[in-house]
């Protein structure tokens, strides 16, 4: 029964999220509204973690299976795939490398600058603790 209770919370939020998708004129999918609703619920303790975590962990663990049907749908878009095969592969690969490098270097820059000012008492004076 515990599982049913947890699922009913998760599905109720999903339903609320669908309502929001209908009502709010933004190009945002219901699942994103739901994710944010759930996060707010958890942070404010309106939804205690232990009231959802069992079912939530199970669903997240098996999530990859849920992508299978949509991916098999590639059968029905072979033509569209053929038309963009080369750009698809080139863009998917190259951008991945660029994004990783930029994100990592930016993070490292911010962390090291933070460390430097923390080590130097003159500079860190008056600054909030990071």
């Amino acid at each position: 029964m515990k599982f049913i209770k947890q699922l009913s919370i998760i599905l109720s939020i999903s339903f609320l999220a669908e309502l929001m998708e209908e009502l709010i004129p933004l190009p945002i999918a219901a699942s994103i509204y739901g994710l944010i609703l759930m996060l707010i619920g958890l942070i404010t303790h309106i939804i205690p973690l232990e009231k959802v975590e069992g079912a939530a962990d199970f669903l997240v663990e098996i999530m990859a299976i849920m992508f299978v049907p949509a991916t098999v749908g590639i059968m029905t878009s072979v033509e569209a795939l053929k038309q963009m095969l080369i750009p698809l592969v080139v863009i998917s690969s190259l951008t991945t490398l660029i994004i990783m490098a930029v994100t990592g270097r930016t993070a490292q820059f911010i962390i090291r600058r933070g460390n430097k000012s923390a080590a130097d008492p003159e500079e860190s004076k008056g600054e909030g603790k990071a």
Binding site: E18, G41, L42, L59
Partner: peptide, 8 residues
């Protein structure tokens, strides 16, 4: 959809 909600 419910699983994406659970990513929270």
């Amino acid at each position: 959809t419910p699983t994406t909600v659970c990513l929270a």
